[in-house]
Computed example of a mutant assay.
Amino acid sequence: MARYVFAVQSNAADGLEQEYNEWYSGQHLKDVLACPGVVGARRLTLADKQILPTPHVFKYFCLYEIELDDLQTFIDALMSRAGTERMPINKAMGNSLPVFWQVIE
């Protein structure tokens, strides 16, 4: 069985940070965890201290751990649920950058 990480960098919409965090931690994580193959998730926020003083575009980062034979199964489930009652998208969601990584064994 292959293992993947679904890494999502994101921001709250302007002025909606509290609502964004409540929605993401309280509902969205559970909705994504209900997709086939998702075995874990962790949310992070950008630390105040960094090695390099590089500007960072995103404040939030979420790692979803996925284990399944065909990543397309997860992608299809995610896309069919996004924006429905099974996975509502809150207006507090700002921009995001989702990327899949395959775990090297």
Rank of each mutant, 00 (worst) to 15 (best):
15 G>I: 10
11 N>W: 15
61 F>I: 13
12 A>I: 03
8 V>T: 03
93 M>N: 09
46 L>N: 12
35 C>S: 06
82 A>T: 13
28 H>Y: 06
13 A>R: 02
80 S>N: 15
50 Q>T: 09
100 F>W: 03
53 P>Q: 14
60 Y>W: 07
92 A>N: 02
56 H>S: 14
90 N>M: 08
105 E>V: 04
28 H>I: 08
14 D>G: 04
65 E>H: 00
23 W>F: 14
85 E>F: 03
72 Q>H: 08
102 Q>W: 01
27 Q>W: 05
94 G>W: 11
91 K>F: 03
16 L>N: 11
91 K>W: 01
77 A>D: 08
41 A>M: 08
23 W>V: 02
79 M>E: 15
56 H>G: 12
69 D>W: 04
66 I>V: 14
48 D>W: 08
87 M>R: 13
77 A>Q: 11
76 D>L: 01
81 R>H: 13
15 G>L: 11
101 W>C: 14
71 L>V: 09
40 G>H: 06
56 H>W: 05
21 N>L: 10
33 L>H: 01
3 R>C: 06
77 A>E: 02
37 G>D: 04
61 F>M: 15
14 D>M: 08
56 H>V: 11
82 A>S: 15
30 K>R: 13
19 E>N: 12
24 Y>N: 02
76 D>Y: 05
35 C>N: 06
96 S>V: 01
83 G>T: 07
52 L>R: 14
20 Y>E: 04
62 C>N: 10
102 Q>H: 07
67 E>F: 04
39 V>L: 06
53 P>E: 15
3 R>P: 11
38 V>D: 02
102 Q>M: 09
105 E>A: 03
24 Y>Q: 02
25 S>C: 06
54 T>I: 13
43 R>L: 10
57 V>R: 06
24 Y>A: 02
92 A>R: 05
6 F>I: 09
86 R>H: 15
4 Y>G: 07
103 V>T: 07
71 L>E: 00
69 D>Y: 11
81 R>D: 09
9 Q>W: 08
